[in-house]
Design a protein around this nucleic acid. Sequence first.
DNA 1: TAAAGCATGTAAGAGGTTACATGATTGG
DNA 2: CCAATCATGTAACCTCTTACATGCTTTA
Lengths: 184, 184
Amino acid sequence: MLDLAVLGILRRGPRHGYDVKRQLAELGWLRVSFGAVYPALRRLERRGLIEAMHPTSRRKAYRLTAAGAQTLDAMLLDDSDEMEEDRRFAMRLAFLGYVDPERRIGILKRRRTRLVARLAEARLALRRAATSGSDAYTLALVRHNVRTVEADVSWLDELITLARTEPPVSELPLTTVLPDQAPT
Amino acid sequence: MLDLAVLGILRRGPRHGYDVKRQLAELGWLRVSFGAVYPALRRLERRGLIEAMHPTSRRKAYRLTAAGAQTLDAMLLDDSDEMEEDRRFAMRLAFLGYVDPERRIGILKRRRTRLVARLAEARLALRRAATSGSDAYTLALVRHNVRTVEADVSWLDELITLARTEPPVSELPLTTVLPDQAPT
DNA sequence: TAAAGCATGTAAGAGGTTACATGATTGG
DNA sequence: CCAATCATGTAACCTCTTACATGCTTTA
């Protein structure tokens, strides 16, 4: 998941590690520690998905390679999440602008299907908790769970109609000119 | 977090590992694998927080010890979550009925304070995203984040008024008779 | 009597955190 | 010039997953 996040951030332009972590935190997507960020950058570099640029000052900026951009595309299309479903989807949504416009609705719809399934589970859990005489707090928790998933589904419906009407977001050029200097 | 969940489930009565995992999943609290559950049980047993009962058939049921009940109490009162805040709070809320009624409101209020702080962060992130011209999907994500936290805060307010009015939930006897047989 | 589900367990590894070490740069 | 912040990195550890091994019990 960190890998996806890093590739997504670097898709917008070169960044150094400290900056990647900060941007992730500022947008409230992922609060990772440096002990995760720096190893991730080295890992991605070894796999050839990103490359280090001539260090300006002491900062070591990385930029996405062509292979990295391809891998990012594949990651954005890959729905087969089981673990951390919600956070992973949030990640993918944040970078959905980089996905081929034709495929965006498909991603959103598959997410909707999964949420609807979870809604059924949550409602089942609610019925079970209600009949088996759970205490007020357990009940409140399960009920809130149902409401949250319901809200998520209708939000997704908004997103789907938005994806249908909205013209594709203008994309940054990737293979053309990327500044060799990291932005301050 | 698994430890808290296991102790909380066992607080209701003896269970064997397979059953603990199932109950956690049925309530939609925590989807852990057996590879986590069984080691957790052995760990808790070594620490003297739970004890194995004479195995009925092939099932190895565990029951909470007095030390375990004490530790559970301490865990329920411990607010100092940094990691996995939401899931941990959901856990604590599910077992809030086992907490001294006087202290329940305190727990809920501290949670509220934290949520309000997060709401401020989320709104800041939204302003940043709106002014810096992020694409529609990033914006939708951040906006949804704000709405979700808002909904959580008002839900907490409901819970707080509920905790004020509600008479304390009847608690299961712990130190008295616990059946030596695990329920089927 | 075979398949499906129940039940317990282990080993390897993924993917993080915390704590630590180190040092440059900037602002008051 | 001192503190705060910027910046990179490593090592030990934690918690959980996946994959595997093993065998009992119920049901069609």
